[in-house]
Simulated scan of single mutants.
Amino acid sequence: MKKYDQCLDQELLIKIRSGDDEAMEYLMEKYRGLVRTEARKFFLTGGDEEDLIQEGMIGLFKAVRSYQEERDAAFSTFATICVRRQIYSTVTASNRKKHGPLNNYISIFGSFTEENGKLNEVLEDSLENPEELLLRKEKIRNYYDIINEKLSDYEKQVMEHYLNGDDYTQIAKKLGRTDKSIDNAIQRIRRKLNQDS
């Protein structure tokens, strides 16, 4: 790959268009640092930096395929725009899907008595026999116990707002925290609850 060290981007693009896979590999590697830099500027809910880097590399690939020399922009400028757009589109799409309210949920902060309205609403809709109903109530109580035992008060607050359909930004405003803090809390909640499921 050292044979490409002296090549300008325009020369590499010509080689790539003539089918030189090594030139493509070299150019992608050359711009990996740019992709990393752009990825660090964004935050992907439920994802990590590597996910954003992969999206950025897709944007870079698109830039290679669609760059036109006759335009008055250097390839590096065009590549930066394509990478940024790809990452931004991914983050935006992720946020739209991620924050829709859940279809079914149970309040995690009611009392755990049988008089608890929300608990009974969930259970009364079922056509289960009394034994299945009792087992289901017990399972729900156990889940509440796990929540109370494993989660901090802050995590319980975040979870309640999340289950009520609030997105990360809304939760952050209500609790006086950052979006990143809310995302971290939700990741911890998932990790803690998945240990017992």
Results as ranks from 00 to 15, higher is better:
138 E>P: 00
64 V>Y: 08
108 I>N: 06
135 L>C: 10
139 K>T: 11
121 E>P: 00
51 D>P: 02
160 E>V: 12
52 L>D: 01
64 V>K: 02
166 D>H: 05
118 K>E: 10
56 G>T: 04
164 N>V: 05
93 A>N: 15
127 L>I: 09
63 A>Q: 05
159 M>R: 12
81 I>F: 01
89 S>H: 15
150 K>E: 05
72 D>T: 15
103 N>W: 07
133 L>K: 12
142 N>E: 06
74 A>S: 14
54 Q>M: 13
73 A>G: 05
140 I>Q: 06
69 E>Y: 11
39 A>E: 11
51 D>F: 12
97 K>T: 10
168 Y>L: 09
140 I>Y: 09
169 T>E: 15
63 A>V: 06
147 I>H: 03
159 M>G: 07
122 V>W: 00
158 V>H: 04
146 I>F: 02
131 E>M: 07
112 F>G: 15
45 T>N: 03
96 R>D: 13
92 T>L: 12
124 E>C: 03
45 T>G: 02
53 I>G: 05
115 E>T: 10
152 S>F: 02
149 E>W: 02
84 R>N: 14
113 T>V: 09
130 P>R: 14
116 N>K: 03
157 Q>G: 09
64 V>T: 10
44 L>E: 08
96 R>S: 11
76 S>E: 14
86 Q>D: 01
165 G>M: 03
89 S>V: 00
161 H>G: 01
89 S>N: 15
170 Q>K: 11
127 L>Q: 05
69 E>F: 07
154 Y>D: 13
119 L>S: 00
158 V>D: 01
141 R>W: 05
64 V>L: 08
44 L>S: 09
164 N>C: 12
144 Y>N: 09
165 G>K: 07
100 G>F: 05
135 L>A: 11
161 H>M: 08
123 L>E: 00
49 E>H: 07
93 A>W: 14
120 N>A: 09
117 G>I: 10
81 I>C: 02
70 E>S: 08
158 V>N: 03
114 E>S: 11
159 M>H: 07
154 Y>L: 15
88 Y>S: 14
112 F>S: 14
150 K>Y: 03
48 D>P: 12
65 R>P: 10
84 R>V: 15
145 D>L: 04
54 Q>G: 12
65 R>K: 13
59 G>V: 06
99 H>D: 08
113 T>N: 11
61 F>N: 11
134 L>E: 15
79 A>S: 08
163 L>T: 02
93 A>E: 15
136 R>T: 10
123 L>K: 01
153 D>H: 09
105 Y>T: 15
158 V>Q: 03
146 I>M: 06
51 D>W: 13
56 G>V: 10
50 E>D: 14
88 Y>G: 05
52 L>W: 09
166 D>F: 03
114 E>C: 04
72 D>K: 15
77 T>K: 14
63 A>T: 13
80 T>Q: 00
98 K>E: 08
94 S>D: 12
87 I>H: 00
118 K>N: 02
71 R>C: 11
116 N>D: 13
77 T>C: 01
130 P>K: 13
50 E>F: 15
42 F>T: 12
67 Y>K: 07
59 G>N: 00
170 Q>F: 04
75 F>S: 10
143 Y>R: 14
121 E>T: 08
78 F>W: 08
50 E>G: 12
72 D>P: 15
71 R>S: 11
